[in-house]
Design a protein around this nucleic acid. Structure first.
Length: 422
RNA sequence: GUGGAUGUAGCUCAGCUGGUUAGAGUACCAGAUUGUGGCUCUGGGGGUCGUGGGUUCAAGUCCCAUCAUCCACCCCA
């Protein structure tokens, strides 16, 4: 073999791809019901879009982007997430001039130069939604409710919704100051990582997985403690709407999302059983992002779900759909003349909407039967010299093994009729 | 980016302290059944032992590097 697929990429083969199609159908449907319309943006963008839109201090921008120079010497980046592109498209196509809010969804590949492991690839796939133009707390609740509804429709009823509010630019300096005051006395006890975070982004200390840091931060002030009156009220209303909808959630004041642009509502959906990468989706509000990208001051909120992780969760629970994509009828032929007749019959079956196939390997009757059995077809139609002379075909039910002779002219009608008549 | 484990037929794996032509199960193909799948039996094809170096009379087996996979960290979807 010349080469293999690049590290962290996957071939989605027949047998697996049906799971993707199943999920994709559910996505199209739920988005229509919730009033979201699809947008398709390029998989690569100018690098500065992500630097600005995701945030310079994020891991994504610092070390995970697939960035290269194209032949025109432009810096291009394979998209690491979907929000920045949606914002760019919203501004570039002046969607803010139309009725608000604008509710969009996308589905497609994303690229991050991470170290691959279970549930994490370099090319992975996300389904996400974005709402531009509404500050209303009900839209926060809708977005979360929709995500949970989507999981529920797939049978994933045991996932946990964690929510938090990270405040707005008014609250940020307050949290920062109070956290630094809190951690100052124990600074030397924090992990090396968190010692760095102390200056740069003390919020992230709350999120640290190290036992020592978690212990030290148990009594630390949280973002919720420092919310300004507006943010506090907004968060209270978001929760009220969730309760009204009967959506269970966990208040998690350690939840700090990695992307710089989040304001107020932040949430994450966890599946504890799919390995270390337990997040199957997350999102939040980003009221400053659109302005930061050069647009009019416009609020936004969205989420993204990882499709590979959803599939992992489905497989773990035995919820992945059965694969039933093979043909229904197999045409078995013996000899040249029968092969021509069979080929013509095959075309007729297909035109009648019946999934059908035949042998193209010159196999013996026995081998054709065996092959048909492996394909899992319900019926075989057998045509040989004898049948040709008598102007009939043999119709065999592969499950029961029963077979009967049918006049050649009637076979199409016979297969198209309900099973009871056969 | 860091640490650990693992790479032998398409797949799951065996191969003892280095020692003749590298095995099994399964899958694939064919025959038993000269026109009938699933069960059974028989036979057959298929392996640069991840790759590249090294040690040795001799390397699948030991050493080094490299690539890949898995797990954990980091981070996230």
């Amino acid at each position: 073999m010349l080469t293999t697929r690049p590290r962290g990429t996957a071939d989605i083969l027949p047998g697996q791809v049906e799971k993707w199609q199943y999920i994709e159908e559910k996505i199209v449907r739920i988005c229509r019901e919730y009033g979201y319309r699809e947008i398709r943006t390029p998989v690569f963008e100018h690098t500065e879009l992500f630097v600005r839109g995701v945030g310079e201090d994020t891991d994504i921008v610092e070390k995970e982007m697939y960035t290269f120079r194209d032949r025109g010497d432009r810096s291009i980046t394979l998209r690491p997430e979907g929000t920045a592109s949606a914002v760019r498209a919203y501004l570039e196509n002046k969607l803010y001039a139309g009725p608000q809010p604008v509710k969009l969804y996308y589905i497609g590949p994303m690229f991050r130069y991470d170290r691959p492991q279970a549930g994490r690839l370099r090319q992975f796939h996300q389904f996400g939604v974005e709402v531009f133009g509404s500050y209303h707390p009900a839209i926060d609740a809708e977005v979360m409710a929709m995500a949970m509804d989507f999981y529920g429709r797939l049978g994933l009823n045991d996932l946990e919704l964690h929510i938090n509010s990270v405040g707005c630019p008014n609250c940020r300096p307050v949290v920062r100051k109070r956290l630094q005051e809190f951690f100052q006395p124990v600074l030397a006890d924090l992990c090396p990582n968190c010692r760095g975070r102390f200056e740069r982004n003390p919020l992230r200390i709350l999120d640290c997985k190290s036992d020592r840091c978690a212990e030290l931060s148990r009594e630390a002030p949280t973002t919720v403690d420092c919310l300004c009156p507006d943010c506090g009220e907004h968060f209270a209303q978001v929760q009220q709407f969730l309760q009204d909808l009967g959506i269970p959630y966990v208040l998690n004041n350690r939840l700090v999302r990695g992307l710089d642009y989040y304001t107020r509502t932040a949430f994450e959906i966890m599946a504890p059983d799919i390995g270390a990468q337990s997040s199957v989706g997350g999102g939040g509000r980003y009221d400053g992002l659109i302005e930061a990208c050069g647009g009019p001051p416009t609020p936004g909120i969205g989420y993204a779900l990882g499709l590979e992780r959803i599939i992992l969760a489905l497989e773990n629970r035995g919820l992945a759909p059965d694969v039933t994509s093979g043909p229904e009828v197999f045409v078995v032929v013996l000899g040249e003349r029968a092969a021509r007749e069979g080929f013509a019959l095959l075309a007729k079956l297909r035109r009648a909407g019946i999934a059908a196939d035949m042998d193209y390997q010159g196999r013996s009757l026995k081998a054709q039967m065996k092959y048909a059995g492996k394909l899992g077809v319900r019926y075989t139609v057998i045509i040989g010299e004898e049948e040709l002379q008598r102007n009939i075909v043999v119709l065999r039910d592969m499950e029961s093994g029963n077979q009967r002779e049918i006049p050649g002219a009637r076979i199409l009608q016979n297969l198209a009729e309900p099973a009871a008549d056969r």
